[in-house]
Simulated assay, not measured.
Amino acid sequence: MSVALHHVDEGPRDAPVIMLSGSLGSTVEMWRPQVSPLTERFRVIRVDHRGHGGSPVPPGPYTIADLAGDVLALLDRLGLERVAWCGLSMGGMIGMYLGSEAPERVTSLTLCCTTSNFPDTTVWKERIAAVSSGGTAPLAEGVVSRWFTPDWAAAHPDTMAEAAAWVAGTPDEGYIASCQALEVWDHRDRLGAITAPTLVIAGSADPSTPVEPHARTIVEGIPGARLEVLDAAHLATIEAADEATRLIAEHAAAHPV
């Protein structure tokens, strides 16, 4: 059963719509660098996944299909037939699901620092156990250290502190249930069904979903998909914000409704 997602809806009402969907442990605030430039030409809708930010926290476990169902329900409530989709990490997984299972609802896909499958699910088992015993707060600093390259992190302590607060503020139940979704995620056999024009953005220093094999598998699986690699770690939309935003905007604009 879908839940009513917390979302922020900005930009011209008559402009093409782009929806932004973030990573595990984030909130709508992770897209703040994109808001001002994107709202010059798009209606921009940022969403909090179930179990995150201002959205409800239904009992788990969740699946990516559940998270995609929440998005489809939001589109229906807003009266939006089709949107350009941009998702990072877990948000990119939702985009892949929508692209193959609800292709009529997306005009294009931008898939950032994400994967179609985790061959080794140990990280999720360990993360579930850790949050079950101690909550999200003790994990926050370690999680965020993988989001950015060390030099960039050292130069941006305020951003690091804010990002750690997103993770620490994520409800334990929602975080665990989302990890359970990632643990079983495998969309490799459905990539070929995606027909929306697809841009894959990867971070050259991303330890969580590195170019090889994660981005490469997506690009090779989705017909016509294009790969762009940025000099960044996992949250490339923040670390390489200007370049990422340009790519996101150009791809969405090139494939309007």
Rank of each mutant, 00 (worst) to 15 (best):
L72I: 08
M1E: 11
T122K: 03
I218K: 06
V8Q: 14
G134V: 02
T149I: 06
G224S: 13
A254L: 12
I248E: 07
L80E: 01
P150I: 07
G174P: 02
T245R: 10
R77G: 08
D9F: 09
T149H: 02
G51Y: 07
V71R: 05
I222M: 08
T107K: 01
P37H: 11
P12E: 05
V131P: 01
A232R: 11
A193F: 00
P138G: 08
F148D: 05
G192K: 03
E173Y: 00
A73H: 11
M19Q: 03
V17A: 14
H6Q: 08
V106N: 03
P119R: 12
G53Y: 06
R77K: 10
L67V: 12
R127N: 04
L78Y: 00
V123A: 14
I176M: 10
V131E: 04
P16I: 07
E29C: 00
P256C: 14
R46C: 12
L5K: 08
R46F: 04
A215I: 07
A241G: 13
S89D: 03
T245V: 13
A181S: 13
T114C: 09
G203L: 09
E81V: 09
C86S: 10
A154I: 02
V131A: 06
V144T: 03
G221K: 10
D189M: 12
A196C: 10
S2A: 15
A252C: 15
L98E: 04
P12Y: 03
A225L: 08
E239A: 10
T217M: 12
A254W: 10
V167T: 11
G174C: 07
I194S: 02
S89P: 01
M90C: 03
P171I: 09
A240P: 05
A68V: 12
I194G: 04
I222Y: 03
T209S: 14
P37A: 14
T237H: 15
L5A: 12
S26Q: 08
A129L: 05
P56Q: 13
H187C: 08
G192T: 06
S89G: 10
E126L: 14
D231T: 12
P256N: 11
E141F: 01
P58W: 12
I222E: 10
A73F: 01
G60H: 07
A254G: 15
R46Y: 00
R13C: 05
I18A: 14
E250N: 14
T122A: 13
A196F: 11
E141I: 02
V211Y: 04
M19Y: 07
R82L: 09
D172E: 12
E101P: 00
R32Y: 11
A232M: 11
I45R: 05
H255F: 15
E173L: 09
V257C: 09
Y175S: 02
R13S: 15
G169N: 08
H251F: 07
Q34D: 06
A193I: 00
E40A: 15
A140K: 08
G91K: 01
R82P: 00
A244E: 11
E104F: 02
V131L: 06
R127T: 14
R50I: 12
A253I: 05
